[in-house]
């Protein structure tokens, strides 16, 4: 059964889509059967994987509304282990179309469950808001990965997202938990590390991924080419960081080996551990 990870942040510009595309690409390079679900009506993750949206016969909106089976909407990418369930502007109409449907917030989860056996990792790229699509993505997921810009002040406002995640866990998805917070766009000076005194982060530090994503202009440029940076230039700093993040997740989910001797995901202690 796939590990279903929702990449979510209510704030725009935190690197959600970049993380979704490059993490998916990195997992596929490690030959993990990966599906990326683009839940953002802008469809940037779809474009970032080289999918021509106008040519699609079906997309995530069709899966939501039942116009197409999920298997038919999933498309291949140039990486053999990576497939994508594309999103585009039609997603804007989904909430309205399902407004009278009972249990609509679990609809995506039900659809994804039917194909979860086919993949080892399913990543959901949530839109930068806390709307129906983001909530559906969180209800669908087992884990939340929260990217934030590498500035300690960006932690402000995360409480809103966590409050909603807590409510969703209580009401709709009891298996939901927070995998961790990923610092992105870290400046050179930080050398990929958070230059923040231990006493300020305190107990929050255990919720951070060990990997941080450096600022790398190539990450943005590669999306213009419709490829993850891990395919476009695997030697780039940004690509290496996402490969490292993928390795961290693989260790966490598959080998149950955690850096620095932290508990594995299935051990009792991991409840408190948070980030892989």
């Amino acid at each position: 059964m796939a590990n279903v990870i929702c990449i979510v942040s209510q704030k725009g510009g935190t690197g959600k889509t970049t993380t979704a595309v490059n993490l998916a690409g990195a997992l596929a390079l490690f030959e993990r059967r990966t599906l990326l679900i683009d839940c953002d009506p802008l469809g940037n993750a779809t474009t970032g994987l080289g999918i021509e949206k106008p040519t699609l016969s079906a997309d995530l909106a069709d899966v939501f509304t039942g116009n197409a089976p999920i298997e038919e909407a999933v498309v291949d990418t140039e990486l053999p282990h990576l497939r994508v369930l594309p999103g585009r502007f039609s997603l804007m109409e989904v909430e309205k179309a399902l407004s009278l449907s009972a249990d609509r917030q679990r609809r995506l989860r039900k659809r994804v469950e039917t194909i979860a056996e086919d993949y080892e990792y399913i990543l959901l790229d949530a839109p930068p808001s806390l709307n129906f699509l983001a909530v559906s993505a969180m209800v669908c997921a087992d884990w939340l990965l929260i990217p934030v810009q590498c500035q300690i002040y960006t932690l402000e406002g995360m409480g809103q997202l966590l409050a909603i995640a807590g409510s969703l866990q209580q009401e709709h998805n009891p298996g939901l938990s927070v995998a961790g917070v990923l610092f992105t766009m870290c400046p050179d000076a930080a050398e990929g590390q958070i230059s923040c005194p231990e006493e300020i982060l305190g107990t929050f530090r255990k919720n951070l991924f060990h990997t941080t994503i450096p600022w790398d202009g190539q990450l943005r440029e590669s999306s213009d080419f419709g490829r993850p940076l891990v395919l476009h230039d695997i030697t780039a700093r940004g690509a290496r960081a996402y490969l490292k993040l993928a390795m961290e997740l693989v260790h966490f989910f598959e080998q149950e080996i955690r850096p620095f001797g932290e508990p594995s995901p299935n051990s009792k202690d991991s409840i408190e551990a948070g980030a892989p």
Partner: peptide, 9 residues
């Protein structure tokens, strides 16, 4: 935030 995450997990 750490407390909220701990609570959820």
């Amino acid at each position: 935030l750490a407390d909220m995450i701990s609570d959820i997990n």
